[in-house]
Amino acid sequence: MNTKQTSKFSHSNASIMNRSTESLANPEELLVVKNLSVSFIQYAKGLKQLNLEVICDLNVSVNSGEIVAIVGSSGSGKSLLAHAILGILPTNAKVTGTIRYQGQALTTERQKVFRGREISLIPQSVNYLDPLMKVGEQVQNTIRTKDAKQLQQQVFERYHLSKEAGLLYPFQLSGGMARRVLVATAVSGGAKLIIADEPTPGLHPEVVAETLAHLKELANQGCGVMMITHDIEAAMKIADRIAVFYAGTTVEVAPIEDFKEGGEALRHPYTRALWMALPENDFKPIPGFQPTPTDLPPGCLFEPRCHLRTAECQCKKPEMQDLRGGQVRCIHAT
């Protein structure tokens, strides 16, 4: 397993510390995630401890007014990135690396203060709402100020939700309504950073368009939006930058123009393959599977499936490097 991290924290939960003292170059940068690793301690047979690394050496940043999409296949642990930023990982999770918010390290204490206020989550589905509580009440719960009721009604109005909608239980919401309630819940606290976790799962095209429009609107108002998704097409519609997530890490971060152009404009073989797999291009899936956290390849994580691989790729994990206005994790990237 990767033990590159020199700083090991004894805190079991998300304890993100300021590893470097360098000040931020870009004042616009709202969130900077550097070398983030999340691992789970599992007890295998005979009290043997297994360190399962689900996110490793992940780098990504989000600026104010910008939408950054984290694109990766479903079930690859992308959601854990959101949970790590919010500090709501399970207690057996271990986090290393740095997360900076507005130029300062996002410590456990700051996470506690910020979540639901400065930083908020748009969850995947209505399953993330309490099934026995009226949705209006739940939104008021997250606001936590005296005028919660008024604020809730204002937010509901903004998202074209009637007063009566607030009196409904989650199971009574239709697909589109549920989406709007979830967005309303997230923005009701006046967040500056919004993390949308899989905002368009199996939705009606109209609802997808509406949801994406809401995210775009939030970015236009100055929020930083991190959109975690498996839907690269949806990401291409609204994102400013796309970070490609593969086997627990980001293999490429590229401006949206490069994705629109495709092919050579992209940097990583996986990203190119993803792009080729789009319906409007070749629609050809990439052969092979993503490795699971239990058996990651020793060198480059994409090596087993890469057509550009060389012997060198097998022994060393490529570092994230800047390239043509983006970043890539590949030693042969051009």
Partner: peptide
């Protein structure tokens, strides 16, 4: 362990 408790925590409840 449910999703809605996770979301409530994400919203700052504790």
């Amino acid at each position: 362990e449910s999703d809605y408790i996770l979301f409530a925590r994400a919203n700052g409840e504790s």
